[in-house]
Design a binder for these strands. Structure first.
Ligand SMILES: [Zn+2]
Ligand SMILES: [Zn+2]
Ligand SMILES: [Zn+2]
Ligand SMILES: [Zn+2]
Lengths: 161, 161
DNA sequence: CTTGACCTTAGATTAAACTCTAAGGTTTAT
DNA sequence: ATAAACCTTAGAGTTTAATCTAAGGTCAAG
């Protein structure tokens, strides 16, 4: 039997988190001490590890609640149900990945087009791209950008002479 | 000059969102009508489009606030500053992608190991994997899983005769 | 027998980006 | 002139997964 702090340490979670899981119906200690302390047994530990493993593969707590309800009543569920949940989640995750990959591409384009130098950002191609809709950010534009920078630098130099 | 609803429609945002952006210092209409209506001019539209484009490439509103402060004072910032922000964001996005890819892999393993059939989930390899730490979910296990299913199915059949 | 580490509860706060509500004022069209 | 559609404000609610706070009870060590 573990008290909340012991279990927390053992599973590398905060005691707060365990109380939170209890409040949200994910994990309740099987008993309480006379003084009201939560006491977790091995089954509880197993259940917590189940939760943490499910979390580690990307399920939300709500989804884990569903998984747990299947876990506790396996006989009345089919493999199809369980696999369905996993496949749904997989699809969501893949959509999110596609979205982020799109972001990464756009950012890479922006980054590539910018000289990254110490010159004034007045002609920065990143800002220009964000300012106007139809600015492309490819090799050709980078050249233009650099030319503008040269122009700009000259102006600055001229101003300094 | 556009009123809030017009601008909202034009840029496919909700009026609420524009008020929200105003409250959070991202975009304020340049003027107000006598009756207090927000009136946005072309610069405001441009600024909103800037915000939306930055959002589209994955910046958070806080980051966009930073970008805007550079935009409005370009001369005092260098390309290096702007590119730095983009590269930071890119790195964050790539980390997130790596994380999600890890999730996707784990989920794919789980999914592959499960027969997905209509049989009872009592021997479902997904649940088994979540129950115990060191269960691997590869071809070999799938075989074992299927054998168990057969056993289970037989039991069910026996029970039905 | 008191200090410090732990435990209890309910409820507030965090981050992000809106979204909605209440309660009322204005404009446009019929 | 009245209804529909729009505008105003301040502030509360949404989602996720905790984290933190206040105010107090319990226990082991010295
Ligand atoms: Zn540059
Ligand atoms: Zn630049
Ligand atoms: Zn199966
Ligand atoms: Zn299965």
């Amino acid at each position: 039997m573990y008290r909340i702090g012991e279990l927390a340490k053992q599973c590398d979670v905060k005691a707060d988190t365990l109380r939170f899981y209890e409040k949200h119906g994910l994990l309740a200690p099987s008993t309480r001490s006379e003084s009201g302390y939560r006491l977790y047994n091995q089954d509880d530990v197993a259940r917590l590890r189940f939760i943490l493993r499910a979390k580690a593969v990307g399920f939300t707590l709500n989804e884990i609640t569903e998984l747990l309800s299947i876990e506790l009543d396996k006989a009345n569920w089919a493999c199809a149900d369980v696999k369905g949940m996993v496949d749904n989640k997989l699809e969501q995750v893949q959509i999110k990945i596609a979205e982020l990959t799109q972001f990464a591409n756009s950012l890479q384009h922006l980054s590539n087009a910018c000289c990254g130098g110490p010159d004034s950002a007045e002609h920065c191609s990143i800002l220009e791209a964000l300012e106007s809709e139809d600015k492309q950010l490819h090799a050709r534009n980078e050249t233009a950008h650099k030319a503008q920078h040269v122009k700009h630098t000259k102006t600055v130099k001229a101003a300094l002479t």
